[in-house]
Amino acid sequence: MPDTHDTSSSDSAYNYAYLDEQTKRMIRRAILKAVAVPGYQVPFGGREMPLPYGWGTGGIQVTAAIIGRDDTLKVIDQGADDTTNAVSIRRFFAKVADVATTTRTEEATVIQTRHRVPETPLKEGQILVFQVPIPEPLRMLEPRETETRTLHALTEYGGMQVSLYESIARHGRISKAYNYPVLVNGRYMMSPSPIPKFDNPKLDNNAALQLYGAGREKRIYAVPPYTPVKSLDFDDHPFEIETWSECCALCGSKESFLDEMIVDDDGKRLFVCSDTDYCQERQQADKP
């Protein structure tokens, strides 16, 4: 066996934050372009990461390119800090980037998320990194990248309007529940990633920087702070979000996004906050 590969120790063979400096520079340049052209998908030379595609490799690459020893990282999946993939990604960065981690939204400088925007309002200086499976909002209407690129270049978004309108004609309302398309700064149509439409209003004019990373599709896009983000709708069918008649069984919140759980064989339901940090903060505040 050649001894050129140090296969015994897994960490020392890798650079700070896993990516080599050349790769970080390439991603950093893509991020700057993404911020300069809000909502536009910048192609980048995405790398294989040690986690599978579809499991947050785009978000991980973005986080790895921005994170430093001064940061405090929070990772959520479905709003929760303790879901297995969130745990796995948090462990990865604690290991390769020697970074402090937290579950508290307000303490975090970088928050990597899959499918949710935290309920606690974000502050200026925080960066929210989204994991994106399919960055192209028009992909399910037009599978070809060459076509969708042209549609974005021409601001030709009629197809999406038609698709939403068909939904109204058929169901009397827009039936799209998550990954609900938005228009960024009046120019680019953007996929907000598969967040529930409940979270769409939080993207609008947010004080934090939003970075979106799609690893398998090799695209990065961004919404700078204080940027208008409008969910598509019609004058006679304005955008609306999900509501529940129940409240959270743990903290009593009526305002947060609720997860539904089946608690017995008869199908009895229980509703709790999807954002575990928000829920715990509220429970703690209630204690005397």
Partner: peptide, 18 residues
């Protein structure tokens, strides 16, 4: 392989939305 198998990840937020 990654994208097919990512369906194993929790999707309860999206499912709840639906």
């Amino acid at each position: 392989s990654g994208f097919v198998q990512h369906l194993k990840l929790p999707h309860y937020v999206d499912f709840q939305s639906e």
